[in-house]
Design a protein around this nucleic acid. Structure first.
Length: 421
RNA sequence: GUGAGUGUAGCUCAAUGGUAGAGCACUGGUCUGUGGUUCCAGUGGUUGAGGGUUCGAUUCCCUUCACUCACCCCA
């Protein structure tokens, strides 16, 4: 029979790692809560056209990476490849708009893209994302970036660079695109194969190409910032001034572009050199046209997404996150086991992580089991103890042992264990 | 989709054209109701799968599968 295993690019999060994951999540909740964001959980499965309309028909994600299939009603559905489209859909559908105030939401969950897995890239991966919907104010861009900065500061992840750029808007991007195409036309034969194709479909992406021949051409290309309209230029300046006033370090990268079509004006990335080829830990930008593209009223918005697995990889050195057992009960014989099993239930109700050994297993062996589970305390109860009406509590760290009367066992235990917990 | 690398014990890895070894882990003993250390012993493998060359292949060749990295793309 074929051996059952997880699908390619789909990973189990095992004990030891899952605790670390939860710790990062706890930091996320703290940070995002402090900045006034509220959690939203949207479905993992959506109508396919939610993504084709938002991400863009000709993007790689939509063209060849989505898990799309026919639902029972024959309509195409898709496992979400990113989170923003769903959040905006929910915002419009459920009327989450707050008059005069932007709506601030965050999410965490799995995303799916059928790519070839490699370091830092999975088919099911997890993102933490934040969206601010309903404000055109550059101050909002600054606030969102300050949240991003704060989150990584809390996680104490070093070696990150915040890169920002402005992509322009429907007023100034098309003319810039033409200027860029005009420049590239002369260099067309010197570009790589992919970029010759991009020249028509998405010339901005050529700026982002890693090939040496394209890089040199891209470096001399007209920059987007020089072709921004007054509004976009002003916006970009104010964002930078805001970051400076918060003393948040950043670099302007005029080559920075985004893979999803819906981005406008501010675009940014948090990058690292410690992650192999996948250097983006977080990325995002403004998407003032998305809500309208999804059939809603024109609503400016900005957001980002953080790669959970990439964060975990950057924090990799801490491995032992397995929770230790507080108490291990060693019952020597059936009688002791019967007597202690109900007490174990009560102990657990007091939030003391505890286990009981099997009766009729040698004391030595049970001690070994207790040790392997990292138990701080061991309770030893055999026929001798039952006859004398008291039990032995051993502190595994100090090896100190003391006796507790059987009738006051629960109180005695909590007195001894709690203070050290 | 393209390219490269790697598949040997539960895990991390050696070795050799003559039917495989270490460390860790596991089990037991040293220690008959007291763990983590030491020392000793033991369990454990169709060397990813299939085919070819050969007297003989885990080793060489081919095919295939899996994993990894990179391209691509992106978080």
């Amino acid at each position: 029979m074929e051996k059952l295993k997880a699908l390619k690019g789909f990973k189990d999060l095992l004990p030891g790692e899952s605790e670390h994951w939860e710790a990062v999540s706890a930091v996320m909740r703290e940070s995002f809560d402090a900045f006034g964001f509220s959690l939203i959980r949207t479905p993992i499965l959506e109508r396919t056209h939610l993504f084709t309309r938002s991400i863009g028909e000709t993007t790689d994600i939509v063209e060849k990476e989505m898990y799309t299939f026919e639902d029972w009603d024959k309509k195409p559905v898709t496992l979400r490849p990113e989170g923003t489209a769903s959040v905006v859909r929910a915002y419009l559908e459920k009327g989450l708009a707050i008059p005069t105030l932007p709506t601030k939401l965050y999410y965490q969950g799995p995303m799916f893209r059928h790519e070839r897995p490699q370091a830092g890239r999975l088919r099911q991966f997890h993102q933490i994302g934040a969206e601010v919907i309903g404000s055109l104010d550059p101050q909002q861009d600054v606030e969102l970036l300050s949240l991003l900065h704060d989150f990584f500061q809390r996680l104490e992840i070093k070696g990150l660079t915040l890169e920002i750029n402005s992509l322009g808007c429907p007023t100034c991007r098309p003319p810039y695109r033409e200027v860029l195409q005009g420049y590239l036309e002369k260099e067309l034969s010197n570009l790589c194969e992919d970029c010759q194709r991009r020249y028509l479909s998405n010339p901005l992406r050529i700026l982002d190409c890693k090939k040496a021949e394209c890089k040199t051409i891209a470096q001399k290309a007209p920059v987007s910032s020089a072709h921004l309209c007054g509004e976009c230029k002003d916006h970009f300046t104010q964002v930078q001034e805001g970051l400076q006033s918060l003393k948040i370090p950043y670099e302007v990268n005029t080559m920075l572009v985004r893979g999803l079509d819906y981005y406008t004006k501010t675009a940014f990335e948090m990058t690292t050199r410690n992650l192999g080829a996948q250097n983006a830990v977080a990325a995002g930008g403004r998407y003032d046209g998305l809500a309208q593209a999804l059939g809603g009223p024109s609503t400016p918005a900005i957001g980002f997404a953080i790669g959970m697995e990439r964060i975990m990889a950057l924090m990799a050195e801490s491995t032992d996150h397995k929770p230790h057992l507080k108490l291990f009960i060693v019952p020597l014989g059936e009688t002791a086991h019967h007597r202690l099993f109900p007490i174990l239930y009560q102990i657990r109700q007091k939030n003391i992580r505890s286990e009981i050994g099997q009766p009729n297993v040698a004391l030595k062996r049970q001690m070994k089991q207790a040790d392997r589970l990292g138990a701080e305390f061991v309770l030893i109860v055999g026929d001798n103890e039952l006859a004398e009406g008291k039990v032995i509590l051993r502190n595994m760290g100090t090896k100190a042992q003391l006796e507790i009367p059987l009738e006051h066992l629960l109180d005695g235990l909590t007195d001894q264990i709690r203070p050290l917990g």
